[in-house]
């Protein structure tokens, strides 16, 4: 009896990984002899931006909050960096600007919530409006429909090596902070019980701001990767990231309420799964409606299975 339940809870814990494995196998089978190193590179390219933003965002989700303005934050950060490059012709300054702007946006987001006692989800919704308006205004200020960084310049940076480096270093750093520093451990604790956390000397405000700042680094990096990959920035650049991140993190096995069962790996697992799924949909050449339908059903199924643990008699809020 005891063993059975343990087994079940183990299975529940790895549902996301099982889903990932199934998707991967399906993809490989479908690709068949067209399998190539290029394919893996494609997967990396498509995964990395969502993965980086999601990984940073795990800190936010861990504290039990969520942020739907991440996509427009990436866009604003990318545009700012591109503008700086076009003024200074320095890739280094461009990179710094992107990180700084990412940090700044998330700082404003979280500081508003922390010091003015606002519910975070409302500030991020308001932030979404503000940032998307800002994107349009900034692009318009360039006098056209797009802002571009010279292709030849960023092309030198568009290498698998650099991307893998950024991904590995950032995820590694996040895992380290998450599991091996007081900061990460406190974030997790905060997500589980904010009152208890406060009564254990944990500053809720400080920690939630720090969580957003780490996400801000992810935003900055994603902005950089976006520009390196596609140096033409339009009003719709990065617009889908906001929702992609939520879907990826949840699909990857992160509990929506954060807390002790949170894990960094959810971001990568979820991002890769989503990319594989969309690749499969394209191979099957489904119409847009059908493929989104399949996606929604799979999403609900996986999330339901991985949420089987920790059910209560009452409805979850």
């Amino acid at each position: 009896m005891k063993k059975k339940i343990n087994l079940k809870s183990k299975v529940v814990e790895i549902v996301s990984l099982v889903a990932l494995a199934i998707l991967a196998v399906t993809y490989l089978v479908m690709m068949g002899d067209r399998l190539s190193p290029y394919m893996l590179q494609t997967l990396l390219n498509q995964t990395i931006i969502t993965a980086v933003v999601s990984t940073g965002a795990v800190f936010i989700y861990t504290t039990g909050a969520f942020d739907i303005s991440l996509g427009s934050a990436v866009a604003v950060s990318a545009i700012s960096g591109a503008m700086v490059y076009n003024k200074t012709e320095s890739l280094f300054l461009m990179f710094l600007t992107m990180i700084a702007v990412g940090l700044l946006i998330e700082l404003i987001d979280s500081a508003l919530a922390a010091f003015l006692n606002l519910p975070v989800f409302v500030t991020t919704i308001a932030m979404l409006s503000v940032l998307s308006a800002l994107v349009k205004i900034m692009i318009a200020s360039g006098g056209g429909a797009k802002i571009e960084v010279p292709r030849a310049v960023v092309k030198t940076l568009d290498s698998v090596g650099l991307k893998v480096l950024i991904l590995v270093v950032f995820i590694g750093l996040c895992i380290f902070i998450y599991n091996y520093t007081a900061l990460g451990r406190r974030e997790k604790f905060l997500g589980g019980n904010p009152i208890c956390a406060k009564l254990t000397g944990i500053s809720v405000k400080k920690l939630s701001i720090l969580a957003f700042l780490i996400a801000g680094v992810g935003v900055g990096l994603a902005a950089f990767l976006t520009v390196v990959r596609a140096p033409t920035i339009t009003t719709s650049t990065a617009s889908s990231i906001g929702m992609d991140v939520i879907i990826a993190i949840v699909f990857g096995g992160m509990p929506a309420s954060g807390g002790a069962r949170s894990k960094i790996s959810a971001a990568l697992v979820g991002s890769v799964s989503m990319v594989l799924l969309s690749q499969i949909m394209v191979i099957l050449n489904f119409s847009a409606g059908i493929s989104q339908c399949v996606k929604s059903i799979l999403f609900l199924a996986v999330v339901t299975l991985s949420g089987l643990k920790g059910r209560k008699a009452m409805l979850t809020r």
Binding site: V250, S287, G289, S291, S296, T304, G307, T316
Partner: peptide
């Protein structure tokens, strides 16, 4: 939401995708 016993936020993400896709279908 009631059957899946997930937080409403998450169920609603799936439902949104589903309904949008049905519109298209």
């Amino acid at each position: 939401y009631v059957l899946l016993k997930l937080p409403a936020l998450i169920t609603s993400l799936g439902v949104t995708l589903l309904y949008e896709s049905l519109v298209s279908i």
